[in-house]
Simulated assay, not measured.
Amino acid sequence: MNTPVSLEELGPRICIMGPSNSGKSTLADAISRKTALPVVHLDLLHHLPDTNWVPRGHAEFLRLHADAVSQERWVMEGNYTKCATERLARATGLILLDVPVTVGLLRYIRRCYSSTPRIGGLRTGRENVTWEMIKYITLVAPENRLHHKRVYDQVRLPKLLLKSPHDVEACFQRWGLRT
């Protein structure tokens, strides 16, 4: 973990990015409970409610994203790089979860067999393991990780890079967060 940043230093608009199944939703939810910042799960904006990951129309998603970003206070989790520039322009802090691919893959499989609803999920019941998602996590996400790291390096905001589950747990402890 890099130089510790306090939760207060990240300000009232915190952006959390990272690969699928890295813990973005869980961290955003915990920060929201601690700070009373409204949490925005971008997956819920991007996909139609009560569907199995059916995307909204592009214009509708961008409108919902712009509305969410324009608010004065939020903790927003998700990547959706097509609109990250607007999000980061309004953000007061950035957290990048850069956990290894194996962590994301194991969490995905565990999530699909869990009876507990996923934080930030679409509330469609238990998800099934799909080859499409496994390919995404193992083949696409590593390239996205490189892009996210470049974005992180360029952003001039208070920021925190968490590279392992141990780093995330240490952050939870330091900030007094609960899952």
Rank of each mutant, 00 (worst) to 15 (best):
V69K: 03
V75H: 01
E127M: 08
L105D: 01
L94M: 03
Y152A: 08
T35G: 10
Q154M: 09
N52A: 10
R150K: 13
Y136A: 11
I109E: 03
L88D: 02
S114E: 04
L105N: 02
E169K: 14
P100N: 07
R87S: 02
S164A: 13
H58C: 07
L122I: 14
K163T: 14
D29C: 09
G78V: 05
I109L: 15
G125T: 12
K82Q: 14
R178M: 08
T138I: 11
N2K: 13
F172L: 04
I119C: 01
E77H: 03
C112T: 10
A84E: 02
E169R: 14
A59T: 13
G121R: 05
V129I: 15
W131D: 09
H147V: 13
E8N: 12
T179A: 09
E60V: 11
T130W: 09
L27P: 04
S6N: 11
I16E: 00
I119N: 00
H41G: 12
N21C: 15
R87C: 06
M76I: 07
L162M: 12
R33W: 08
T81C: 10
P100L: 08
N52E: 11
L10I: 11
L7W: 04
L64E: 00
R145D: 10
P55Q: 05
R13K: 15
P55L: 01
F61S: 05
T81M: 13
R150G: 02
F61M: 08
H148I: 09
M1Q: 10
T35Q: 12
V129Q: 06
M133S: 08
R174I: 05
G125Y: 10
R145K: 15
F61T: 08
G120W: 00
E8M: 09
L44C: 08
N2W: 04
S115K: 12
G18A: 05
Y152R: 08
T124H: 11
T85H: 09
I16W: 00
R150W: 00
P158S: 06
Y80E: 06
N128M: 09
P158G: 06
N128H: 08
L122G: 13
S32E: 12
E132K: 14
V40T: 14
N79T: 15
I119A: 00
I134P: 00
S20H: 07
P142W: 05
E77G: 03
M76R: 07
E9D: 14
C171F: 14
S6E: 09
K82N: 14
E8W: 01
W131C: 04
V69S: 06
I119Y: 03
P117V: 04
P158V: 02
A170M: 10
P158C: 03
L139T: 13
F172K: 12
V99T: 15
K82H: 10
V5I: 15
T102A: 13
I137M: 04
A28Y: 10
L105G: 00
L161G: 04
